[in-house]
Design a protein around this nucleic acid. Structure first.
Length: 464
RNA sequence: GACCCGUUCGUCUAGCGGUCUAGGACUCCGCCCUUUCACGGCGGCAACACGGGUUCGAGUCCCGUACGGGUCGCCA
Protein backbone atom coordinates (compact mmCIF):
# COMPACT_ATOMS: atom_id res chain seq x y z
CA UNK A 1 0.00 0.00 0.00
CA UNK A 2 1.03 3.58 0.33
CA UNK A 3 4.53 3.15 1.57
CA UNK A 4 5.35 6.50 0.06
CA UNK A 5 3.25 8.13 2.73
CA UNK A 6 5.88 7.46 5.36
CA UNK A 7 9.52 8.27 5.71
CA UNK A 8 9.97 9.99 2.40
CA UNK A 9 12.23 12.98 2.16
CA UNK A 10 10.64 14.53 -0.86
CA UNK A 11 7.28 16.19 -0.31
CA UNK A 12 4.29 13.94 -0.77
CA UNK A 13 2.81 14.20 -4.24
CA UNK A 14 -0.49 16.02 -4.16
CA UNK A 15 -3.49 13.81 -4.76
CA UNK A 16 -7.00 15.17 -4.80
CA UNK A 17 -10.24 13.45 -5.58
CA UNK A 18 -13.80 13.96 -6.63
CA UNK A 19 -16.14 11.34 -5.22
CA UNK A 20 -19.61 11.61 -6.70
CA UNK A 21 -22.49 9.37 -5.83
CA UNK A 22 -24.14 8.11 -9.04
CA UNK A 23 -27.64 8.85 -7.89
CA UNK A 24 -28.54 11.84 -10.03
CA UNK A 25 -27.12 14.45 -12.36
CA UNK A 26 -23.85 16.34 -12.31
CA UNK A 27 -24.80 19.41 -10.38
CA UNK A 28 -23.05 22.74 -10.75
CA UNK A 29 -21.92 22.58 -7.12
CA UNK A 30 -20.39 19.16 -7.63
CA UNK A 31 -18.78 20.24 -10.88
CA UNK A 32 -17.25 23.22 -9.16
CA UNK A 33 -15.88 20.98 -6.41
CA UNK A 34 -14.40 18.76 -9.11
CA UNK A 35 -12.94 21.82 -10.82
CA UNK A 36 -11.24 23.07 -7.67
CA UNK A 37 -9.84 19.63 -6.97
CA UNK A 38 -8.61 19.31 -10.53
CA UNK A 39 -7.05 22.77 -10.42
CA UNK A 40 -5.36 22.16 -7.10
CA UNK A 41 -3.87 18.87 -8.23
CA UNK A 42 -2.62 20.26 -11.53
CA UNK A 43 -1.31 23.39 -9.89
CA UNK A 44 0.91 21.28 -7.68
CA UNK A 45 1.93 18.73 -10.26
CA UNK A 46 -0.25 16.16 -8.59
CA UNK A 47 -2.99 13.75 -9.53
CA UNK A 48 -6.73 14.04 -9.67
CA UNK A 49 -8.62 10.88 -8.75
CA UNK A 50 -12.21 10.02 -9.51
CA UNK A 51 -13.98 7.64 -7.18
CA UNK A 52 -17.56 6.50 -7.51
CA UNK A 53 -19.35 6.31 -4.19
CA UNK A 54 -21.99 3.78 -5.09
CA UNK A 55 -22.56 2.20 -1.72
CA UNK A 56 -26.23 2.99 -1.97
CA UNK A 57 -27.05 0.19 -4.40
CA UNK A 58 -30.73 1.02 -4.49
CA UNK A 59 -30.24 4.57 -5.73
CA UNK A 60 -27.12 4.21 -7.85
CA UNK A 61 -27.62 3.90 -11.60
CA UNK A 62 -25.46 3.50 -14.69
CA UNK A 63 -27.28 6.35 -16.41
CA UNK A 64 -26.41 8.66 -13.60
CA UNK A 65 -22.80 7.63 -13.72
CA UNK A 66 -22.64 8.24 -17.46
CA UNK A 67 -24.10 11.69 -17.07
CA UNK A 68 -21.57 12.57 -14.37
CA UNK A 69 -18.56 11.19 -16.24
CA UNK A 70 -19.66 12.76 -19.53
CA UNK A 71 -20.14 16.06 -17.78
CA UNK A 72 -16.67 16.00 -16.28
CA UNK A 73 -15.15 15.12 -19.64
CA UNK A 74 -17.11 17.85 -21.37
CA UNK A 75 -15.66 20.32 -18.91
CA UNK A 76 -12.21 18.96 -19.60
CA UNK A 77 -11.71 17.72 -16.05
CA UNK A 78 -10.02 14.49 -17.01
CA UNK A 79 -9.07 12.26 -14.12
CA UNK A 80 -5.68 10.63 -13.78
CA UNK A 81 -7.10 7.64 -11.98
CA UNK A 82 -10.58 6.24 -11.73
CA UNK A 83 -13.30 4.52 -13.74
CA UNK A 84 -12.30 3.94 -17.36
CA UNK A 85 -8.85 5.38 -16.62
CA UNK A 86 -7.47 2.75 -14.28
CA UNK A 87 -4.70 3.35 -11.76
CA UNK A 88 -2.82 1.71 -8.94
CA UNK A 89 -5.36 2.42 -6.24
CA UNK A 90 -8.43 0.69 -7.60
CA UNK A 91 -11.03 -0.48 -7.73
CA UNK A 92 -12.54 2.97 -8.00
CA UNK A 93 -16.05 1.88 -7.23
CA UNK A 94 -16.88 1.61 -3.57
CA UNK A 95 -19.19 -1.29 -4.33
CA UNK A 96 -16.08 -3.29 -5.28
CA UNK A 97 -13.95 -2.42 -2.28
CA UNK A 98 -15.58 -4.68 0.30
CA UNK A 99 -12.39 -6.52 1.21
CA UNK A 100 -10.56 -3.31 1.95
CA UNK A 101 -13.34 -2.12 4.20
CA UNK A 102 -13.35 -5.43 6.05
CA UNK A 103 -9.64 -5.08 6.67
CA UNK A 104 -10.02 -1.62 8.10
CA UNK A 105 -13.01 -2.69 10.10
CA UNK A 106 -10.85 -5.39 11.72
CA UNK A 107 -8.36 -2.73 12.77
CA UNK A 108 -11.03 -0.93 14.72
CA UNK A 109 -12.21 -4.19 16.21
CA UNK A 110 -8.71 -5.04 17.38
CA UNK A 111 -8.51 -1.73 19.14
CA UNK A 112 -11.93 -2.28 20.66
CA UNK A 113 -13.23 0.90 19.06
CA UNK A 114 -16.44 -0.61 17.74
CA UNK A 115 -19.44 -2.29 19.26
CA UNK A 116 -22.74 -3.64 18.13
CA UNK A 117 -25.94 -1.74 18.62
CA UNK A 118 -29.22 -3.22 17.36
CA UNK A 119 -27.45 -5.11 14.63
CA UNK A 120 -25.57 -2.03 13.44
CA UNK A 121 -22.00 -1.24 14.43
CA UNK A 122 -20.91 1.94 16.11
CA UNK A 123 -17.51 3.53 16.33
CA UNK A 124 -16.54 4.97 19.71
CA UNK A 125 -15.79 8.64 19.27
CA UNK A 126 -13.08 10.03 21.54
CA UNK A 127 -14.03 12.35 24.37
CA UNK A 128 -11.75 15.22 23.42
CA UNK A 129 -11.57 18.35 21.39
CA UNK A 130 -10.84 17.67 17.75
CA UNK A 131 -9.39 20.50 15.74
CA UNK A 132 -10.05 20.73 12.04
CA UNK A 133 -7.30 22.83 10.53
CA UNK A 134 -9.14 24.00 7.46
CA UNK A 135 -7.42 25.86 4.64
CA UNK A 136 -10.44 28.05 4.07
CA UNK A 137 -12.45 28.10 7.28
CA UNK A 138 -9.56 28.20 9.73
CA UNK A 139 -9.40 26.13 12.89
CA UNK A 140 -12.65 24.54 13.91
CA UNK A 141 -12.82 22.79 17.25
CA UNK A 142 -15.46 20.24 18.18
CA UNK A 143 -15.92 17.61 20.88
CA UNK A 144 -17.91 14.81 19.30
CA UNK A 145 -18.80 13.22 22.60
CA UNK A 146 -20.40 16.42 23.79
CA UNK A 147 -22.10 17.65 20.64
CA UNK A 148 -23.28 14.17 19.79
CA UNK A 149 -24.87 13.45 23.13
CA UNK A 150 -28.04 15.24 22.10
CA UNK A 151 -29.87 15.33 18.83
CA UNK A 152 -32.49 17.62 17.38
CA UNK A 153 -35.76 15.89 16.82
CA UNK A 154 -37.19 17.84 13.93
CA UNK A 155 -40.70 16.52 14.38
CA UNK A 156 -40.91 16.95 18.11
CA UNK A 157 -38.89 20.15 17.81
CA UNK A 158 -36.77 19.44 20.81
CA UNK A 159 -33.42 18.07 21.87
CA UNK A 160 -33.38 14.39 22.65
CA UNK A 161 -30.76 12.12 24.14
CA UNK A 162 -28.51 10.54 21.55
CA UNK A 163 -25.63 8.14 21.25
CA UNK A 164 -22.60 10.18 20.17
CA UNK A 165 -20.86 7.13 18.74
CA UNK A 166 -21.34 7.04 15.01
CA UNK A 167 -22.82 4.15 13.09
CA UNK A 168 -20.32 2.90 10.53
CA UNK A 169 -21.96 -0.34 9.51
CA UNK A 170 -25.56 -1.30 8.85
CA UNK A 171 -27.16 -4.49 10.07
CA UNK A 172 -26.95 -5.84 6.50
CA UNK A 173 -23.15 -5.53 6.67
CA UNK A 174 -22.79 -2.55 4.34
CA UNK A 175 -20.67 0.37 5.49
CA UNK A 176 -21.66 3.98 6.00
CA UNK A 177 -20.33 6.98 4.11
CA UNK A 178 -18.06 8.35 6.84
CA UNK A 179 -16.24 5.07 7.15
CA UNK A 180 -15.76 4.25 3.48
CA UNK A 181 -14.91 7.81 2.62
CA UNK A 182 -12.08 7.92 5.12
CA UNK A 183 -10.82 4.44 4.31
CA UNK A 184 -10.72 5.21 0.61
CA UNK A 185 -8.99 8.52 1.10
CA UNK A 186 -6.33 6.78 3.18
CA UNK A 187 -5.96 3.89 0.76
CA UNK A 188 -5.89 6.11 -2.28
CA UNK A 189 -3.28 8.37 -0.76
CA UNK A 190 -5.44 11.47 -0.94
CA UNK A 191 -3.45 14.37 0.45
CA UNK A 192 -5.96 17.18 0.04
CA UNK A 193 -9.64 16.86 0.69
CA UNK A 194 -11.41 19.72 -1.05
CA UNK A 195 -15.16 19.53 -0.75
CA UNK A 196 -18.30 21.49 0.00
CA UNK A 197 -18.73 23.27 3.29
CA UNK A 198 -21.67 21.02 4.09
CA UNK A 199 -19.02 18.49 5.11
CA UNK A 200 -17.23 20.77 7.53
CA UNK A 201 -19.33 19.60 10.45
CA UNK A 202 -18.66 15.99 9.49
CA UNK A 203 -14.94 16.42 9.39
CA UNK A 204 -14.25 15.88 13.12
CA UNK A 205 -15.81 12.45 12.72
CA UNK A 206 -13.51 11.74 9.84
CA UNK A 207 -10.51 12.93 11.80
CA UNK A 208 -11.44 10.62 14.67
CA UNK A 209 -11.45 7.77 12.16
CA UNK A 210 -8.08 8.76 10.69
CA UNK A 211 -6.64 8.78 14.18
CA UNK A 212 -8.17 5.43 15.03
CA UNK A 213 -6.51 3.97 11.93
CA UNK A 214 -3.25 5.64 12.83
CA UNK A 215 -3.22 7.39 9.47
CA UNK A 216 -1.84 10.80 8.61
CA UNK A 217 -4.42 13.51 8.18
CA UNK A 218 -4.92 15.04 4.77
CA UNK A 219 -5.20 18.77 4.36
CA UNK A 220 -8.81 19.85 4.48
CA UNK A 221 -10.32 22.71 2.51
CA UNK A 222 -14.06 23.28 2.65
CA UNK A 223 -15.38 25.49 -0.07
CA UNK A 224 -18.51 27.59 0.42
CA UNK A 225 -21.78 26.58 -1.15
CA UNK A 226 -23.58 28.05 -4.13
CA UNK A 227 -27.10 29.11 -3.41
CA UNK A 228 -29.98 30.36 -5.52
CA UNK A 229 -30.44 34.06 -5.99
CA UNK A 230 -32.96 34.09 -3.17
CA UNK A 231 -30.52 32.35 -0.83
CA UNK A 232 -32.18 28.97 -0.88
CA UNK A 233 -30.33 25.79 -1.58
CA UNK A 234 -29.86 25.01 -5.26
CA UNK A 235 -31.71 21.96 -6.43
CA UNK A 236 -31.97 20.16 -9.76
CA UNK A 237 -35.03 22.14 -10.68
CA UNK A 238 -33.25 25.47 -10.55
CA UNK A 239 -32.04 27.20 -13.68
CA UNK A 240 -28.36 26.62 -14.23
CA UNK A 241 -28.12 23.77 -11.74
CA UNK A 242 -27.34 20.88 -14.06
CA UNK A 243 -24.25 20.54 -16.23
CA UNK A 244 -25.95 18.55 -18.98
CA UNK A 245 -28.32 21.46 -19.48
CA UNK A 246 -25.39 23.73 -20.23
CA UNK A 247 -24.32 21.26 -22.86
CA UNK A 248 -27.78 21.12 -24.40
CA UNK A 249 -28.35 24.85 -24.23
CA UNK A 250 -25.23 25.80 -26.14
CA UNK A 251 -22.77 26.83 -23.50
CA UNK A 252 -19.06 26.40 -24.01
CA UNK A 253 -17.28 24.29 -21.41
CA UNK A 254 -14.62 26.98 -21.08
CA UNK A 255 -17.28 29.52 -20.19
CA UNK A 256 -18.86 27.25 -17.61
CA UNK A 257 -15.47 26.60 -16.05
CA UNK A 258 -14.80 30.32 -16.08
CA UNK A 259 -18.04 31.03 -14.30
CA UNK A 260 -17.70 28.21 -11.78
CA UNK A 261 -14.14 29.22 -10.96
CA UNK A 262 -15.13 32.80 -10.28
CA UNK A 263 -18.08 32.05 -8.07
CA UNK A 264 -16.31 31.57 -4.78
CA UNK A 265 -12.79 32.27 -5.93
CA UNK A 266 -10.89 35.34 -7.08
CA UNK A 267 -7.31 35.84 -8.14
CA UNK A 268 -7.33 39.07 -6.21
CA UNK A 269 -7.57 41.38 -9.19
CA UNK A 270 -10.29 42.49 -11.56
CA UNK A 271 -9.89 39.73 -14.09
CA UNK A 272 -13.23 38.24 -15.15
CA UNK A 273 -12.41 36.29 -18.25
CA UNK A 274 -10.39 33.10 -18.39
CA UNK A 275 -10.61 31.40 -21.75
CA UNK A 276 -9.20 28.02 -20.78
CA UNK A 277 -8.46 25.79 -17.84
CA UNK A 278 -4.79 26.61 -18.34
CA UNK A 279 -5.48 30.28 -17.87
CA UNK A 280 -7.36 29.61 -14.64
CA UNK A 281 -4.59 27.29 -13.55
CA UNK A 282 -2.04 30.06 -13.82
CA UNK A 283 -3.89 32.17 -11.26
CA UNK A 284 -5.58 29.55 -9.11
CA UNK A 285 -4.79 29.30 -5.44
CA UNK A 286 -6.76 28.01 -2.47
CA UNK A 287 -6.01 31.25 -0.64
CA UNK A 288 -8.20 33.06 -3.16
CA UNK A 289 -11.23 30.97 -2.27
CA UNK A 290 -13.83 32.91 -0.33
CA UNK A 291 -15.20 31.82 3.00
CA UNK A 292 -18.76 32.92 2.37
CA UNK A 293 -21.51 31.32 0.34
CA UNK A 294 -22.40 32.80 -3.00
CA UNK A 295 -25.54 33.09 -5.03
CA UNK A 296 -25.80 31.80 -8.53
CA UNK A 297 -26.41 34.35 -11.28
CA UNK A 298 -27.51 32.81 -14.58
CA UNK A 299 -27.42 36.18 -16.35
CA UNK A 300 -23.77 36.62 -15.64
CA UNK A 301 -23.07 33.09 -16.70
CA UNK A 302 -24.76 33.79 -20.04
CA UNK A 303 -22.83 37.02 -20.44
CA UNK A 304 -19.63 35.11 -19.87
CA UNK A 305 -20.63 32.54 -22.47
CA UNK A 306 -21.28 35.35 -24.95
CA UNK A 307 -17.79 36.69 -24.31
CA UNK A 308 -16.33 33.26 -24.91
CA UNK A 309 -18.26 32.90 -28.16
CA UNK A 310 -16.96 36.26 -29.34
CA UNK A 311 -13.40 35.21 -28.61
CA UNK A 312 -13.60 31.88 -30.46
CA UNK A 313 -11.40 31.46 -33.56
CA UNK A 314 -13.54 31.06 -36.69
CA UNK A 315 -12.79 27.39 -37.28
CA UNK A 316 -13.37 26.42 -33.68
CA UNK A 317 -16.56 28.48 -33.71
CA UNK A 318 -17.82 26.55 -36.70
CA UNK A 319 -16.90 23.26 -35.08
CA UNK A 320 -18.72 23.86 -31.81
CA UNK A 321 -21.83 25.29 -33.44
CA UNK A 322 -22.24 22.54 -35.98
CA UNK A 323 -24.40 20.28 -33.83
CA UNK A 324 -26.67 23.19 -33.00
CA UNK A 325 -27.16 24.33 -36.56
CA UNK A 326 -27.74 20.75 -37.63
CA UNK A 327 -30.37 20.41 -34.97
CA UNK A 328 -32.03 23.49 -36.47
CA UNK A 329 -32.19 21.70 -39.82
CA UNK A 330 -29.32 23.55 -41.43
CA UNK A 331 -26.75 21.72 -43.52
CA UNK A 332 -23.41 22.50 -41.82
CA UNK A 333 -21.56 22.09 -45.11
CA UNK A 334 -23.63 24.81 -46.81
CA UNK A 335 -21.21 27.37 -48.21
CA UNK A 336 -23.14 30.20 -46.56
CA UNK A 337 -22.64 28.81 -43.07
CA UNK A 338 -19.32 30.47 -42.13
CA UNK A 339 -20.52 33.94 -43.10
CA UNK A 340 -23.84 33.32 -41.38
CA UNK A 341 -22.12 32.28 -38.18
CA UNK A 342 -20.13 35.46 -38.12
CA UNK A 343 -23.30 37.50 -38.57
CA UNK A 344 -24.86 35.84 -35.55
CA UNK A 345 -21.80 35.75 -33.36
CA UNK A 346 -21.95 39.18 -31.80
CA UNK A 347 -25.55 38.93 -30.77
CA UNK A 348 -25.59 35.46 -29.31
CA UNK A 349 -25.26 34.38 -25.74
CA UNK A 350 -25.41 30.68 -26.53
CA UNK A 351 -24.82 28.43 -29.51
CA UNK A 352 -28.55 27.75 -29.53
CA UNK A 353 -29.09 31.48 -30.13
CA UNK A 354 -26.80 31.28 -33.14
CA UNK A 355 -28.92 28.62 -34.77
CA UNK A 356 -32.06 30.59 -34.11
CA UNK A 357 -30.66 33.76 -35.66
CA UNK A 358 -29.35 32.19 -38.84
CA UNK A 359 -32.24 29.80 -39.49
CA UNK A 360 -34.15 32.35 -41.67
CA UNK A 361 -31.19 32.39 -44.03
CA UNK A 362 -31.59 28.71 -44.81
CA UNK A 363 -35.28 27.94 -44.69
CA UNK A 364 -38.13 29.38 -46.69
CA UNK A 365 -40.65 28.16 -44.17
CA UNK A 366 -40.41 31.19 -41.97
CA UNK A 367 -41.88 31.16 -38.52
CA UNK A 368 -43.42 34.62 -38.70
CA UNK A 369 -43.34 36.36 -35.35
CA UNK A 370 -46.86 37.68 -34.92
CA UNK A 371 -46.03 40.90 -33.01
CA UNK A 372 -43.42 41.68 -35.65
CA UNK A 373 -45.94 41.09 -38.45
CA UNK A 374 -48.54 43.24 -36.70
CA UNK A 375 -46.06 46.05 -36.29
CA UNK A 376 -45.45 46.15 -40.02
CA UNK A 377 -48.90 45.41 -41.44
CA UNK A 378 -50.48 48.05 -39.26
CA UNK A 379 -48.85 50.84 -41.27
CA UNK A 380 -50.75 52.79 -43.97
CA UNK A 381 -49.76 51.99 -47.51
CA UNK A 382 -47.81 48.92 -46.52
CA UNK A 383 -48.97 47.00 -49.60
CA UNK A 384 -47.36 49.46 -51.96
CA UNK A 385 -44.22 49.48 -49.84
CA UNK A 386 -43.92 45.71 -50.03
CA UNK A 387 -44.59 45.66 -53.74
CA UNK A 388 -42.04 48.40 -54.38
CA UNK A 389 -39.46 46.50 -52.34
CA UNK A 390 -40.03 43.29 -54.27
CA UNK A 391 -39.97 45.08 -57.64
CA UNK A 392 -36.76 46.97 -56.97
CA UNK A 393 -34.94 44.07 -55.39
CA UNK A 394 -35.94 41.89 -58.33
CA UNK A 395 -34.43 44.41 -60.76
CA UNK A 396 -31.14 44.38 -58.87
CA UNK A 397 -28.42 43.14 -61.18
CA UNK A 398 -25.63 42.78 -58.67
CA UNK A 399 -26.68 40.93 -55.49
CA UNK A 400 -24.12 42.43 -53.11
CA UNK A 401 -24.29 44.53 -49.95
CA UNK A 402 -24.17 48.07 -51.29
CA UNK A 403 -26.22 47.25 -54.35
CA UNK A 404 -28.93 45.64 -52.24
CA UNK A 405 -28.97 48.69 -50.05
CA UNK A 406 -29.27 50.88 -53.14
CA UNK A 407 -32.27 48.85 -54.27
CA UNK A 408 -34.03 49.41 -50.99
CA UNK A 409 -33.18 53.10 -51.29
CA UNK A 410 -34.57 53.15 -54.81
CA UNK A 411 -37.78 51.50 -53.65
CA UNK A 412 -38.15 54.18 -51.00
CA UNK A 413 -37.39 56.95 -53.52
CA UNK A 414 -40.02 55.62 -55.91
CA UNK A 415 -42.67 56.31 -53.28
CA UNK A 416 -41.04 59.48 -52.05
CA UNK A 417 -40.28 57.95 -48.67
CA UNK A 418 -37.29 57.53 -46.43
CA UNK A 419 -35.24 54.37 -46.57
CA UNK A 420 -35.59 53.89 -42.84
CA UNK A 421 -39.29 53.25 -43.26
CA UNK A 422 -38.50 50.40 -45.64
CA UNK A 423 -35.98 48.53 -43.53
CA UNK A 424 -38.41 47.06 -41.04
CA UNK A 425 -40.99 45.81 -43.55
CA UNK A 426 -38.20 44.33 -45.59
CA UNK A 427 -36.76 42.62 -42.54
CA UNK A 428 -40.03 41.13 -41.39
CA UNK A 429 -41.06 40.04 -44.88
CA UNK A 430 -37.72 38.39 -45.62
CA UNK A 431 -36.81 36.94 -42.22
CA UNK A 432 -40.04 36.76 -40.24
CA UNK A 433 -39.07 38.96 -37.35
CA UNK A 434 -38.04 42.48 -36.37
CA UNK A 435 -35.09 41.01 -34.48
CA UNK A 436 -32.08 39.38 -36.02
CA UNK A 437 -28.73 39.95 -37.60
CA UNK A 438 -27.76 42.80 -39.91
CA UNK A 439 -30.42 42.97 -42.62
CA UNK A 440 -28.43 43.62 -45.78
CA UNK A 441 -25.88 40.82 -45.24
CA UNK A 442 -28.79 38.56 -44.34
CA UNK A 443 -30.52 39.36 -47.64
CA UNK A 444 -27.30 38.77 -49.48
CA UNK A 445 -26.95 35.32 -47.95
CA UNK A 446 -30.59 34.38 -48.47
CA UNK A 447 -30.22 35.11 -52.18
CA UNK A 448 -32.06 37.42 -54.57
CA UNK A 449 -34.64 35.02 -55.90
CA UNK A 450 -35.70 33.79 -52.49
CA UNK A 451 -35.79 37.25 -50.97
CA UNK A 452 -38.09 38.50 -53.72
CA UNK A 453 -40.26 35.41 -53.38
CA UNK A 454 -40.52 35.82 -49.64
CA UNK A 455 -41.48 39.47 -49.91
CA UNK A 456 -44.16 38.77 -52.50
CA UNK A 457 -45.36 35.85 -50.48
CA UNK A 458 -45.53 38.06 -47.40
CA UNK A 459 -47.75 40.46 -49.35
CA UNK A 460 -50.20 37.78 -50.45
CA UNK A 461 -50.28 36.10 -47.04
CA UNK A 462 -50.68 39.09 -44.78
CA UNK A 463 -51.84 41.97 -46.94
CA UNK A 464 -54.65 40.68 -49.10
C1' G B 1 -32.75 23.76 19.91
C1' A B 2 -27.23 22.67 20.24
C1' C B 3 -22.80 23.04 17.65
C1' C B 4 -20.06 24.97 13.36
C1' C B 5 -19.15 28.56 9.34
C1' G B 6 -20.19 33.16 7.25
C1' U B 7 -21.85 38.80 6.58
C1' U B 8 -18.65 45.01 1.17
C1' C B 9 -23.61 47.69 -4.34
C1' G B 10 -29.78 43.38 -6.17
C1' U B 11 -25.67 39.53 -7.72
C1' C B 12 -20.18 37.90 -8.30
C1' U B 13 -16.26 40.31 -6.10
C1' A B 14 -11.44 43.87 -5.05
C1' G B 15 -9.89 45.44 -0.34
C1' C B 16 -5.34 41.71 3.90
C1' G B 17 -4.93 49.34 9.62
C1' G B 18 -3.89 55.14 6.74
C1' U B 19 -3.57 55.03 -0.90
C1' C B 20 -11.66 54.16 0.43
C1' U B 21 -15.28 60.92 -1.08
C1' A B 22 -14.75 51.95 -1.20
C1' G B 23 -12.51 49.81 -7.28
C1' G B 24 -14.11 46.15 -11.25
C1' A B 25 -17.95 42.88 -13.47
C1' C B 26 -23.28 41.23 -14.34
C1' U B 27 -28.19 43.39 -14.25
C1' C B 28 -30.95 48.05 -14.82
C1' C B 29 -31.26 53.27 -16.71
C1' G B 30 -29.43 57.40 -19.96
C1' C B 31 -26.44 59.19 -24.10
C1' C B 32 -23.40 58.19 -28.53
C1' C B 33 -22.63 54.85 -32.74
C1' U B 34 -26.26 52.44 -36.10
C1' U B 35 -31.65 54.37 -41.82
C1' U B 36 -33.68 47.64 -38.16
C1' C B 37 -31.86 44.34 -33.94
C1' A B 38 -27.56 43.72 -31.50
C1' C B 39 -22.37 44.61 -30.53
C1' G B 40 -19.30 48.57 -29.08
C1' G B 41 -18.11 53.41 -26.58
C1' C B 42 -19.32 56.89 -22.68
C1' G B 43 -22.01 57.99 -18.28
C1' G B 44 -25.45 56.97 -14.13
C1' C B 45 -28.12 54.35 -9.92
C1' A B 46 -26.33 51.16 -6.09
C1' A B 47 -22.65 48.38 -0.64
C1' C B 48 -18.67 48.16 4.14
C1' A B 49 -25.50 44.27 8.68
C1' C B 50 -25.82 46.69 13.74
C1' G B 51 -23.57 47.94 18.57
C1' G B 52 -19.37 48.10 21.53
C1' G B 53 -14.16 48.01 22.00
C1' U B 54 -8.45 48.17 20.41
C1' U B 55 -5.78 52.21 17.78
C1' C B 56 -3.47 58.67 16.47
C1' G B 57 -6.43 56.14 12.65
C1' A B 58 -11.02 50.29 11.19
C1' G B 59 -14.45 48.01 5.48
C1' U B 60 -9.81 45.98 7.31
C1' C B 61 -8.23 43.57 14.38
C1' C B 62 -11.35 41.82 18.97
C1' C B 63 -16.19 41.01 21.47
C1' G B 64 -21.47 40.95 21.35
C1' U B 65 -26.24 41.18 18.69
C1' A B 66 -28.96 40.39 14.33
C1' C B 67 -29.33 37.90 9.92
C1' G B 68 -27.88 33.95 6.36
C1' G B 69 -25.99 29.03 5.60
C1' G B 70 -24.44 24.19 7.32
C1' U B 71 -24.38 19.78 10.59
C1' C B 72 -26.87 17.08 14.22
C1' G B 73 -29.41 9.70 9.57
C1' C B 74 -28.41 2.54 9.80
C1' C B 75 -28.10 9.46 2.55
C1' A B 76 -23.77 10.56 0.43
Amino acid sequence: MNSNRFGTLSPMPVRTRFAPSPTGFLHIGGARTALYNWLYAKKHGGEFVLRVEDTDAARSTDESQSIILDGLRWLGLEWDEGPEAGGDHGPYYQSQRGEIYERYFEKLKEKDLVYEDNGAVRFRVPDKEIVVDDQICGQVTVNLKETGSTRWDAEAKKEVEANPDIVIRRPDGSFIFHFVNVVDDIEMGITHVIRGEDHLSNTPKHIALYEAFGADLPTFAHIPLNLNKDGSKMSKRDQGALIHEYIENGFLPEAVNNYMALIGWSSGGDRELYFSLDEILADFDLSGVNASNSKFDYDKCKWMNAEHIKALPADKFKEVSSSFIEKAGIDPTDARVPASLELARERSETLADIAKIITPIFTDELAYDQPSVDKVTGKDGISTVVTALADHLEKNSEWKGDAIKASIQAAADSLGQKMGAFMLPCRVAATGSTAGADLVPMLELIGQKRVVERIRNFGTTFLS
